[in-house]
Design a protein around this nucleic acid. Structure first.
Lengths: 214, 214
DNA sequence: GAGGAAGTGGAAGGTCTATCTCCGGTTATC
DNA sequence: GATAACCGGAGATAGACCTTCCACTTCCTC
């Protein structure tokens, strides 16, 4: 195969920088940031970017493989929790927070092109874990029966959408939406306390009149 | 003021057609559809469009004023319902469904430019109505106390986001997300039955691999 | 039913925004 | 200090989209 010789020191350094810059920018502004911006943030030229990565998509893949691993880890961790509802809740909340903090995650999970195989691979691994968390919580009578495993990623998309529009103005706001969701998933329960304050009218107006779409 | 003489018959006909076509396209594809597509759908040329409307935004405004009126009407109607929780729930659900069926609604409510004044006007009218629905439901002990009036439009944004990605594949799916939300808003309650079936794996994959963003 | 005001279509101009290529100049490494 | 590897960024390329303009057509009035 391609017995690639190691990159020259400066080249390797720049590669790292590009990945780091991309991680940050993807999280803040979604996977659609311009290559130009990524290169600038990394302190290199566009040319350097294209010498290291065949195209934009490869970079996206390189960045998100790590994230996928972390999501899988979250499921494993949750499975360690004894109380079935607590385990399920923890997992849902943890992944929701990852989405809330990384705007790009949603884009990648939703896309067909970007890291097609990687996403499929990820799904194959996460599904049985998610299934177990779900089944256990249902068996314990804590989770409503009519919830399907596929409702969970949808919830994450919804939370991500809210985080996306509120991020700049009230970065913790999404927690409220998340709380409502999680309480809606419970079978019988009094409300969980909200962990974030309500939004102020002024913040609301700012959110609702955001310019452009980035 | 401008005592505008009535349009010539054919011109008026075309104007109507443009508005109708826009209504449909905005609902299906969001407010960002190209003027070219609207004109084509209306069976007129681009030139005709620009003779009737000074620019794109004016059309958007013309189309959504009606929608706003309908949302206000929904609040009035809900206030007629005696049971405070039922009234609140009905209002939230009705507006959520409007969002689910009209992709453009979200865009307009979120935007700063499009019909700036109209949106502000709309908010001024809807706020007291929403406040009353909320307060009554809280006073009756049916709605959790820690919900703020501004959480409601956020819920609508979330439902709209879900409807947006699922619309083409499973047009009723959003009802599940909505049910979870509404149940999460209740103070103490066992789950409301879901009105839509869970999503199938195949549908899920289609949704998650949607091309482009339209 | 004729004349002219009003209306029409769509090519073309103008802007943007992005990705990716190319190559003269620079730097690390042996 | 030779040279292969690397760098930066202008510019080629592509695709959307909004809006203008004007030669041509249609409606309405007298």
């Amino acid at each position: 195969m391609t017995a690639t010789r190691p990159l020259r020191a400066d080249a390797e350094r720049n590669r790292q920088r590009i990945v780091e810059a991309a991680k940050t920018l993807f999280a803040e502004r979604g996977v659609d940031v311009a290559v130009e911006d990524i290169a600038a943030a990394a302190g290199v030229g566009i040319g350097t970017f294209y010498r290291r990565f065949p195209d934009r998509e490869s970079l996206v893949e390189a960045v998100f493989v790590t994230k996928f691993e972390r999501m899988i880890q979250a499921a494993h961790d949750a499975l360690e929790i004894e109380d079935p509802w607590d385990a399920f809740r923890t997992w849902v909340v943890t992944v929701a927070r990852m989405h809330a903090r990384d705007r790009g995650l949603k884009d990648v999970v939703l896309s067909s092109d970007r890291g097609r195989e990687k996403v499929a691979e990820f799904r194959a691994i996460i599904q049985p874990l998610a299934g177990e968390l779900l089944d256990r919580a249902k068996a314990a009578g804590a989770l409503r029966d009519d919830v399907s495993a596929l409702d969970v990623p949808m919830i994450h998309q919804a939370v991500s959408a809210i985080a996306e529009i509120t991020r700049d103005v009230a970065p913790e706001y999404y927690e409220r939406t998340l709380t409502l969701f999680v309480d809606g998933l419970a079978r019988e329960r009094t409300p969980t306390p909200m962990v974030a304050p309500p939004i102020e009218m002024e913040q609301f107006l700012t959110i609702m009149s955001r310019k452009g779409k980035r």
